[in-house]
Simulated scan of single mutants.
Amino acid sequence: MPDQPLNAADFDVIENTLLQYGDDHSVLNPSELDGYFSALVSSPARVDIAEWFPAIWGGQNPDWDSPEQGKQFIELCVRHMNTLASQLALDASAFKARFETTEHQGQPLTLAEEWCFGYLRGVAVGNWPQMPAPQAALLQSIIECAEQDNFELPADLNVALHNQRVAAIEPAARSLHNYWLDRR
């Protein structure tokens, strides 16, 4: 089980835990957590749990209802990080970001804002240094997506352009992982 990717029930536990202990300064949902972990496993240097775990909660660890609950959450986080690290390092085509979906004018629409916001949180915790222009441009595409306000989609949303921007996020994350992997 420790090597197994998380299943839907595991992600439900993560979501419920984030809702129970989170606030305006913490990671809010599994999509944001997935982006956060994707950046952490892509970082130029290993980030210790003592740094990345409190950052999930905005800097302050939760006061768990029980030690078992905290242990379960940490184990699920580590399993998911290991899955992401393996996917990105060994089979990047298997890497799929946990984007959210919504409906816009009767059609399904993929939202990447929360994932990108989590990714940028991971970049900050990982203390990423400046990168050459091509890699900086890849990161900029994630930054721009994180700055979009997808909570209230405009009626005149350019869906084709939106989809094009979202489609660029996973390849950017793969490329950034490869860039740092080659320099570790």
Rank of each mutant, 00 (worst) to 15 (best):
P2I: 10
P2A: 14
D3N: 13
P5D: 09
L6P: 05
L6I: 07
D10Y: 07
V13N: 15
I14N: 00
E15M: 08
N16M: 11
L18D: 06
L19H: 13
Y21I: 03
Y21R: 03
G22I: 05
D23G: 13
D24S: 12
H25R: 13
V27D: 02
V27I: 13
V27S: 03
L28A: 13
P30A: 07
S31N: 02
F37R: 07
S38C: 05
A39I: 01
S42C: 05
S43F: 04
S43V: 00
V47W: 03
V47F: 01
A50K: 13
E51K: 14
W52Y: 10
F53T: 00
P54H: 01
A55G: 06
W57T: 05
W57I: 04
W57N: 04
W57E: 04
N61Q: 15
N61T: 15
W64E: 03
S66M: 05
S66Y: 12
P67R: 14
G70T: 04
G70F: 01
Q72Y: 07
F73K: 15
E75F: 03
V78I: 15
R79W: 08
R79D: 08
R79H: 11
M81W: 08
N82G: 08
S86A: 14
L88E: 11
L90G: 13
A94N: 13
F95H: 13
F95G: 10
K96E: 14
K96D: 11
K96R: 14
A97G: 14
A97Y: 07
F99A: 01
E100Y: 10
T101L: 05
T102Q: 06
T102E: 05
G106Y: 07
L109I: 02
L111P: 01
C116M: 04
F117Y: 11
G118F: 00
G118L: 02
G118V: 00
G118P: 00
Y119R: 01
L120I: 12
R121D: 09
G122H: 05
V123I: 07
V123T: 00
A124H: 12
G126K: 09
N127F: 03
W128E: 09
W128F: 06
Q130F: 02
Q130G: 02
A133W: 01
A133T: 09
P134I: 00
Q135V: 01
A136I: 02
A137L: 07
L138S: 13
Q140I: 01
Q140P: 01
S141V: 07
S141K: 12
I142A: 03
I143P: 01
E144S: 13
E144H: 09
E144Q: 12
E147A: 11
D149M: 04
D149A: 05
N150R: 12
F151G: 13
E152W: 08
E152T: 10
L153H: 07
A155R: 15
D156N: 11
L157I: 03
N158P: 00
V159S: 10
Q164P: 06
R165D: 08
I169V: 10
A173N: 06
L176R: 03
H177P: 07
H177F: 14
D182T: 11
R184M: 09
